[in-house]
Design a protein around this nucleic acid. Sequence first.
RNA 1: GGGCGGUUAGCUCAGUGGUAGAGCAUCUCGCUUACACCGAGAGGGUCGGCGGUUCGAAACCGUCACCGCCCACCA
Length: 947
Amino acid sequence: MLEKTYDPSAVEGRIYAAWQEAGAFRAGAGARPGAGSFTIVIPPPNVTGSLHIGHALNNTLQDILIRFNRMRGKDVLWQPGTDHAGIATQMIVERQLMERQEPSRRELGREKFLERVWAWKAESGGTIINQLKRLGASADWSRERFTMDEGLSAAVRKVFISLYEKGLIYRAKRLVNWHPELETAISDLEVENIETQGKMWHLSYPIENSSEAIVVATTRPETMLGDVAVAVHPDDPRYKGLIGKYAILPLVGRRIPIIADDYADPDMGSGAVKITPAHDFNDFEVGQRHHLKPINIFTPDARINANAPKEYRGLDRFEARRKVLDALEAIGAVLWAEDKTIMVPFDEKTKRVVIEPFLTDQWFVKAEVLAQPALASVREGRTRFVPESWQNTYFAWMENIKPWCISRQLWWGHQIPAWYGPRMNTDPDFGKPEAGMKIFVAATEEEARKQAAAYYGRQIEMHVSGVGSAAFLKAVGEFETIQRDRLNPSAWNLRKASDPFAELSDSKVPLHRDEDVLDTWFSSALWPFSTLGWPEETPELARYYPTDVLVTGFDIIFFWVARMMMMGLEFMGKEPFHTVYVHALVRDEHGAKMSKTKGNVIDPLNLVDEYGADATRFTLAAMAAQGRDMRLALARVEGYRNFVTKLWNAARFLEMNGCARKATFAPNRVDLPVNRWIVGATAKAVAAVQKAIEDYKFNEAANAAYDFVWGLFCDWYLELAKPILNGDQEAGKLETQATAAWVLDQILKLLHPFMPFVTEELWSETGKSGPPRDRMLVLSEWPMLTGLGDPAAEAEMSWLIEVVSGIRSVRQEMNVPAGAKIRLVIVGAGEETGTRVEGQLQALLRMARLEDISYGSDVPDGSAQIVIGEATFALPLKGVIDLDAERVRLKREVAREEVEIGKIDKKLGNEQFVAKAPEDVIEEQRQRREEAGARLERLKAALARLS
RNA sequence: GGGCGGUUAGCUCAGUGGUAGAGCAUCUCGCUUACACCGAGAGGGUCGGCGGUUCGAAACCGUCACCGCCCACCA
């Protein structure tokens, strides 16, 4: 016997364990021949993260697709795993060290520090996976992968080397977005420009050998220490005469040329722009066009460096701004300042640290090349976005894609497989200032040594360095780039930058591995095939690549989706998935983004604790309408928790009424109209849910299931079944018991993808009576219901529902006591009504609370009257009802009908409508007009009887 | 500056050319042992404004307003 209410917390853990025990989530579990495969790779959450509401939504939708397809017999793989999340994880561990007052990362050194990160990963890495399990995620956990697993690391190295050899990865000195606290490059995408109240200062630079001055405007006056030119527009008449002359940079005294460049906009400010190539992306390009050497004035932690006058060195950038302004004001070089709203680049995560354009050597991927096939795939429909409009976002970004900076000055991540050594003096690039070090890219140190040996000649022994790269580079090469120059350069005895080879011994060449690691997204980009074993040619790779659907939030279309497309096409020759389903962002119920600082975060695990995983999942699915953010209101979760209970109680009702499954039950062979009707309705519901899932309309699927189960099955079918189940017609009773049990089975299947726990539990409980279940619900077959449905039964039941509803409505409105049984007199009934009344007698009596039903030729005095079809249903309530109230009610009905008729007549009276509208629409209107007209007449007659 | 999305009942949202919907909330009534996490009934919307296309518009087009998001180098 089922308990009175369902207690998720008592059931979910046990059910989940049973699924795992049964191997139900294993790749290919329950697969039936010929059904094809279905694969999803999970967007790997950060290994040390914890589940937030976005994950809950993301994984619920994936699990719905996975469970649905598994039930359809497909060879299903949901590939799970976690991401090492370079910056985030390293930061967490660094913060821990600080909080525990332990030695810092640099004090520990690379090796020790990485040990600490691995330890932290071991400690907290399982958290999010366990949380996903609590949600019911049915991924194949036996195949769990981590982006820094050996296999995935091998894939990363292979990809890096391959792209390098094709010239699609290169190393270059470029301006990048630099995080001065973390001291690493970050992605353009990790920078958030925030409107900030700032100032614009207008500075006057004197012209050399002249009393004139040129005025430039800037929001960052401290960067003037690095100015190398002033640019004016070539056609600007105000400055024509100054082009080619020099200005003298105040405070610094540097002669800087006045150059002509289109970049200077005559309409902006004074029309003259200071050029600081080392600290501004535009200025960098201007500098390149005019062969101006950038002057970097910052250290990696954004303090003023030795390229600036002494008095500013060591100041941080904001102190420096103050001091520069003071000094400029003192000499009268600040003409005026104005308040201005400016966009300041902050780091996206903390929104606290101002990001600095910074000149460094970094590795880049030629994304502009890899993007072409990835664009074509979407343009030509081999991969599509759902909803489609996201493809525009994808196009816009891919068409303007910039080189992808893939190196990060971090320790936690995939260390770049590149080794540096000095250039031979026989090297064609030897001595060229921009040539830099000789680079050996290889999968292993061994391989790098081999390459180096070939380059330097066999007689030379390699010496692989252990010192910091900056020190090494500084010692060996001509590098003015700032790379952690606080490290001690004396570790190497190589002093002559102009001739780095000079002091090397004959027997030893220093070879030094690049210390940087790859952007986390570099390894994530390989996820759809690296997790399947690539570069090995595994059976899984053959079976499951390309995957089917990628389910993700729009925020990582650029970071991840685009890059998986590029890498998948480059290395597998095929798109990694045919569909990208982009779901909404979850907001709080007032539309605000959830954030810890706002305190409006809804923790999905709290929802699971309070309402159960099924209710949580169902809510997320029901709100996942395409193309719109969802606002999550607790009332919704509560409502769907109630739905779970409702389902539970329906099952309990069946159990109490002996509704056990029958092995021989054939839904197409039931006799009673009510059973024929529910069987057809079940088939319709299954079809609706299936279609909606296939269209990725999760909300429609959820609602269709909800409406069917609650609104039809519970509210009507079970109520209609009661008199039969309690009656003495044995055949009808048996049929109804079997039908009800059969419908419940279909419902459990229908709901299983959305509410796996309660449905599995009920599947097991209901399996205790009737023939034994041959498998768990999770591996059961999705219903294939065809050839069911009976228009006559449907019409009869619709009629019944209309009659019952009509009587109930009148009873309530006329204040008939709920407990009172009343008589019903049917006037003007035709044959059909008669048959129906006879067939549904018990249902009518019970559901409308009737004493008896009779037929009459006249409406009894003082009756309330309801017009349905050709008949008038009279409730003789003389003395019970207020006749005035009944008149009012009928008048209202009449008015309503007249409005309806007015509308239809207007349409049908419109020649254009009759001429142009499709025939079936016109016919429908005529039909409705006829029915409304007849109803109106009867209503008027009913009214007349009362006056 | 460019782009995208939104504006429908008190709230949260469905609804892509043919009778305006759901859940929650509100009000009324609860006889009926599946369920009060329930049942029955009711009220509540000129579908943001204006213009257009169409026989017909919440839906399609244009425009405006407001809200949100994404992208962008304007000193």
